[in-house]
Amino acid sequence: MGNYFNNIFRAISTIAVGMAETWKAMFRPPITLQYPNERWQLPVNARGILFNNVDDCIGCFKCARICPVQCIYIDTVKALPDEDLGKASMGNPIRQHLVRFDIDMFKCCYCDFCTTVCPTECLYMTEEYENGVFSRENGIYHFSKYSPPEAMALRRREQEETMTKALAKEAALAAKKKAAAQKGKETAEA
């Protein structure tokens, strides 16, 4: 019986102690924020949506290679010898047209590897974190400064170049063979 009343007494007393604490908490200022109107200030290095400053991008593929989930897609077209694409702001010469630089932000795991390897520091994470979109395609970001027809023209140019090169190589090879055959004939005749 004594145990029974002891239990009741201890329950009531410990609850009273707890209630005193919660009562104190009532008079503290709230720590919550009214989200869409008020926001926390993010730290400098906060990881949000990736952004690429294409003017500085040299198309080195380092970010695409280190990405653990392969969410960066890059296509480049080599510049012609007489073309001058300028330099990135850190002094690295740009030698290729960046016809495609796509980032799939749905696949991105926000690991920050790509920004650490970037040699020109053109790829960085913004403070923007509200990445909700209504269709899946809108989560894929395109950073290339070439419009689709321009990119297509550049790609075609490269294709043609490689084709002409291959043709020239073939022709040169054929000529060489012919010459060799001729020579062989001549020596045989002689």
Binding site: L42, N45, A46
Partner: peptide
Amino acid sequence: LDLLEWLSGARMLYNYIWVGGLARDLP
């Protein structure tokens, strides 16, 4: 979480401790 976000940039999935070192210096 705020402290660790300040440190690494992310709130929960830090990717902060690398093999042989840390991803960033302490702010």
